[in-house]
């Protein structure tokens, strides 16, 4: 069970959170201007990196807020968590030391 640091509440066990998929995929301001291909890409195309992944979590059994996290998909350790709407921190995989070594 992972420990996830909610940017608003602090470190809590994974039980309190719900995963929300890849982060930083903004809904287009005017979807009607998109081609079918562009809209399809927005709906379905997601990154599946080996390494750092920016993803959304919701502290559903806590403050209820969505936030973003950088997680290393190889080690399951987090490099950073940050509030929704703020940019992805400039962190590389070597910054993953929140847990583990």
């Amino acid at each position: 069970m992972l420990i996830i640091t909610c940017p608003h509440c602090g470190p809590r066990p994974e039980l309190e959170f719900r995963y929300g998929g890849e982060a930083h995929i903004a809904r287009p301001a005017d979807p009607s201007t998109l081609t079918d291909e562009e809209w399809g890409a927005f709906l379905y195309q997601r990154a599946n990196p080996r390494g750092l992944h920016a993803e959304r979590w919701r502290h559903v059994a806590g403050c209820g807020r969505f936030f973003n996290a950088l997680r290393d998909t190889q080690s399951d350790f987090f490099a950073a968590t940050y509030p929704a709407g703020t940019p992805r921190p400039d962190t590389d995989a070597s910054g993953v030391k929140e847990s583990g070594r």
Partner: peptide, 8 residues
């Protein structure tokens, strides 16, 4: 609803 309200 929360997702759209908070993040979009």
């Amino acid at each position: 609803m929360e997702d759209y309200l908070q993040t979009e």
